[in-house]
């Protein structure tokens, strides 16, 4: 039932008369916009001559209704957040890559150059690890996320994130394979700076960051957005304190993986603590 129909169906004075009074009250309401209860009070005044209190109940002021709706939506979003879970799982996946890099590469075709030798190093096991581990991680994240939020009484917006995350990792490997095929490198040539940034962005740690941007957008989560931008900065502009510079071909990757995983782990702990304190009961 709409407000105009209520006027038509009112008893007592004629419908036309009601319509006129109704319009006058609209003008009155519009003349007092700062009065937060103006609509409700007028709504109650109408009750004896045919209006129901349902149409404009106490607290039915549009500003207040809209503010209430926004507040409820914000509270639901807070309830839906389980940000610590993806960060924790992805940190574990990153740390898990360390032994795979260490023992999962094959060195071949070594030939001597000035002051040493150059070898081809194949990371097929590493590629397989990242694909399998990241896909499994997103399944675990989606399942865990839904389980936690459903226990809280709401559904989560995690599936687009999980799909985007898995797709980005696959896309990254596909891009790298095509790039290497089209642009074979010969020592001492190095990829351009742009190509290096692109590779880092589409490498699994970079793809993890890009997917976290999707999650931040889905959850309208500013803190996660800022955290992810920081994480991506660490991934794209590797921190180098000189560690691992002379560690040899078996350990040079360890510092960066430790830093990436450490940032994710710290983020997980931080969000877990914050959300524990802030989540509405």
């Amino acid at each position: 039932m709409r407000a105009d129909r209520q006027v038509e169906g009112a008893d007592g004075p004629g419908a036309d008369e009601h319509a006129v009074i109704w319009q006058c009250l609209h003008v009155l309401m519009l003349r007092h916009p700062r009065d937060q209860l103006a609509l409700a009070q007028i709504g109650l005044l109408w009750k004896p001559i045919g209006m129901t209190s349902d149409a404009t109940p106490v607290g039915g002021d549009p500003r207040r209704l809209l503010a209430d709706a926004r507040d409820l939506a914000r509270r639901v979003r807070l309830t839906q957040r389980v940000t610590w879970l993806p960060l924790l799982v992805l940190a574990l996946v990153t740390f898990g890559a360390i032994p795979v890099y260490r023992y999962g590469h094959v060195v071949s075709d070594c030939h001597p150059v000035d002051g040493g030798e150059v070898c081809e190093v194949w990371f097929q096991t590493v590629t397989f690890y990242w694909l399998a581990a990241v896909l499994l991680a997103y399944v675990v994240i989606a399942y865990g996320y839904l389980r936690v939020t459903r226990a809280r009484g709401v559904d989560a917006r995690v599936l687009p994130y999980a799909v985007a995350g898995a797709a980005l990792v696959g896309l990254g490997f596909a891009f790298a394979a095509v790039w290497i095929r089209l642009n074979p490198l010969t020592h001492p040539e190095e990829p351009s700076a742009f190509a290096q940034v692109l590779f880092r962005l589409l490498d699994p740690p970079g793809a993890i960051g890009l997917a976290l941007l999707v999650l931040a957008w889905l959850e309208r989560h500013v803190a996660l957005l800022l955290f992810t931008l920081g994480y991506l900065t660490v991934v794209l502009v590797p921190i180098n304190f000189g560690w691992g510079a002379h560690w040899g071909p078996h350990t040079w990757f360890i510092p960066q993986l430790v830093i990436n995983g450490g940032v994710l782990l710290l983020g997980s702990a931080g969000f877990a603590l914050t959300q524990r304190l802030r989540r509405p009961r």
Partner: peptide, 20 residues
């Protein structure tokens, strides 16, 4: 305005169900 929805509690229910 629709009476059915223009009510604090029902608008709240719809808002929460939409968001969740």
């Amino acid at each position: 305005l629709d009476d059915l929805v223009h009510q604090r509690v029902r608008l709240g229910i719809l808002t929460i169900a939409h968001e969740a």
